[in-house]
């Protein structure tokens, strides 16, 4: 095949996905960025004039007349990042040993276990979160159970707390952490662990010097895949969170739907994207530096 023909075929094959992403991903993204600098309309919608107070409300420049600086937005953004980081950490600690265990199971049991990990995807997220609601509420399974066992004398106040939000997010995100971790751990050469022990490394040294560095790509993959949707998550805090568990995703949702302030909702979205992108770039750069 000639070089020109090769290119033509390649262009033809790449055209559909390029078109699709261009229309349905880049255009909405650009719209949001543009909207975040427009004036909110009086009854929803936008007015086409430049307006920087959307960001002023969040970051602290405000004239006090058109818009007022409200530090609560930064607090909620910080809380969202914290919740997401905590979710990543808990998922990692829970999944790492399990991935090791599963990778050592006989083929038959492994396949079953991997199927079980993906089982939640077969039912609606909303339904599963309502099930959590039933478990976490004071008269729910957990509260009643602990009281029945005599471990608590008063009902457990878990629902509508930050703890409930993180619990729920960990639950939702576990498969996303588990699968990349498992892929990395499963391909680990066990003979290398034996070689390390044979050469005099203690179990801890073998783990830190041989196992951990070689499973780092899996850890990184899992962390990224869990972190991104966690920062902007609004369903889990919506159902389990209450006022103290409110996350930045809920703010965006409120601005677009309830308050009908699209420019402000857009500004919040742009900030989430910027923060996530920055965290990612720093993370990847660090990983690259380590690998080199």
């Amino acid at each position: 095949m000639s070089r020109r023909r090769e290119r033509a075929v390649l262009a033809l094959l790449l055209a559909p996905v390029t078109l699709y992403l261009g229309v349905f991903f880049l255009v909405p993204l650009a719209t949001i960025v543009v909207f975040s600098f427009l004036t909110p309309g009086l009854y929803g919608g936008v007015e086409w004039s430049f307006y920087h107070w959307n960001y002023g409300r969040i970051f602290g420049w405000a004239d006090g007349i058109t818009e007022v600086f409200e530090p609560v937005y930064l607090r909620i953004l910080g809380r969202s990042l914290g919740f997401a980081a905590l979710t990543v950490a808990i998922c990692l600690v829970l999944c790492y040993p399990v991935a090791f265990w599963v990778s050592r199971l006989p083929e038959r049991w492994r396949a079953l276990f991997l199927f079980l990990v993906t089982l939640p995807f077969f039912s609606s997220l909303i339904v599963r979160l309502y099930a959590w609601l039933l478990i976490l509420r004071p008269s729910g399974l957990l509260g009643e159970g602990l009281m029945a066992l005599g471990l608590r004398s008063t009902p457990l106040e878990l629902l509508y707390t930050p703890v409930a939000v993180v619990l729920g997010m960990v639950y939702v995100m576990i498969p996303f952490m588990f699968l990349p971790l498992f892929a990395a751990i499963d391909t680990l050469d066990r003979a290398q662990v034996e070689a390390a022990l044979d050469l005099g490394a203690t179990r801890t040294q073998a783990f830190l010097k041989v196992v951990l560095p070689q499973t780092l790509p899996g850890i990184a993959g899992g962390a990224v895949i869990v972190f991104i949707p966690s920062v902007g998550n609004f369903i889990v805090p919506d159902i389990l969170g209450g006022a103290r568990g409110l996350m930045v995703g809920n703010l965006v949702e409120q601005q677009f739907l309830a308050a009908r302030n699209w420019p402000f909702g857009s500004a919040l979205s742009v900030i989430i994207m910027t923060v996530v992108l920055t965290v990612l770039l720093v993370f990847v750069a660090r990983l690259r530096a380590r690998g080199a």
Binding site: D189, A191, Q192, E194, A195, A196, L197, D198, L199, G200, A201, T202, R203, K209, V210
Partner: peptide
């Protein structure tokens, strides 16, 4: 790791 014995593995098991 406490035995004064070292091994050359079949697959070499280099890190």
């Amino acid at each position: 790791f406490r035995r004064p014995v070292n091994t050359v593995f079949q697959s070499y098991a280099l890190f």
